[in-house]
Amino acid sequence: MDVTAVIREVLTEEGRLGLPLADIGDLDDLYKRGLTSHASVGLMLALEDRFGIEFPDALLAKATFESIGAIRDALSTLGVVGDTAPTSVE
């Protein structure tokens, strides 16, 4: 499973970013790209459904969802790993 691709898919559905996801790098700050706190919660719930996991309280922080890379790191601590694409270094 390409975890990054799934994150991007969920972000497209839930992020309400108003710009094409192709324009967003893995390390870009999603909040600066328009992710609101309410949209980040929708994103969190959708990721939980998609991966069958539950974010513990310790991960319910703004930083957890601030970039695609950060989300991938958080998911990996919950045992969600796969064929992750290399993190962009732009």
Binding site: S37, L45, L60
Partner: peptide, 14 residues
């Protein structure tokens, strides 16, 4: 709810 716990955390953090 659970979504609320995340919002609470974000609100406090901010």
């Amino acid at each position: 709810g659970r979504a609320g716990r995340a919002l609470t955390a974000t609100q406090r953090e901010g």
